[in-house]
Simulated scan of single mutants.
Amino acid sequence: MKRFEERKLGVAWLTLVVVTVTGFTIAEAVFIKPLSVALVMALSGVKARLVLYRFMELNEAPTGLRVFFNAWLLICVLMIFGLYSVA
């Protein structure tokens, strides 16, 4: 069982690395800045959710707590993108 958990964490770590490199590539390659910011913020939300669920074990938390943190994460990502769009 421990081996399975280690594998899940390894896959999560590798996914975080791939998403980070993808975000960096998008930020450097896409010349439409609002689009690149939207994509990078979406990827950042995916990374944050992965960290919450895999490394902080939110998947074992009560439903109310999971709903709160998912809503908080969505609001943060949308607010950062909204503030970028206004500026």
Rank of each mutant, 00 (worst) to 15 (best):
S36W: 08
L39S: 00
I26L: 14
P34F: 01
V11D: 14
V11C: 13
L16P: 01
R7E: 15
S44M: 08
R7P: 13
I26Q: 00
A12P: 02
P34M: 07
F31L: 11
M41V: 08
T25C: 12
L43H: 01
V18I: 10
L14I: 06
F24R: 11
I32H: 12
W13Q: 03
S44N: 10
T20S: 15
V21E: 04
T25W: 08
T25P: 05
K33N: 08
L43M: 13
F31Y: 12
R3T: 10
I32Y: 14
V46G: 04
F24E: 11
V46K: 01
V46Y: 03
L16V: 07
A38C: 06
V30R: 01
V11F: 15
E6A: 12
E28T: 09
P34S: 06
R7Y: 15
K2A: 11
S44Y: 08
T15H: 06
M41C: 07
F31C: 10
F4N: 13
I32M: 09
T20C: 13
E28Q: 11
M41A: 08
P34V: 05
G10S: 14
F24T: 13
E5T: 12
I26T: 06
A42M: 02
S44W: 07
A38P: 05
R3K: 15
S36I: 07
E28W: 10
P34T: 07
G45Y: 00
G23S: 12
A29P: 07
V30T: 10
F4M: 12
L9G: 12
S36Q: 13
A38E: 09
T15D: 05
A29H: 12
V40R: 01
G23N: 03
F24N: 07
V19A: 03
L43E: 06
F31M: 11
V21L: 11
K8S: 02
L14V: 07
T25N: 05
V37N: 00
V40M: 07
V17Y: 07
G10Y: 15
V46W: 01
G23M: 03
S36G: 03
L14P: 02
G23C: 04
L16M: 05
R7D: 15
G10H: 14
R7F: 15
E5Q: 15
F31S: 13
P34D: 02
G23D: 05
A12R: 04
K33Y: 06
V46S: 06
K8I: 04
T15Q: 06
L35S: 00
F24D: 10
M41G: 02
K33E: 08
L14H: 04
I26D: 02
K33R: 15
V21F: 10
G10C: 10
L16G: 09
E5H: 15
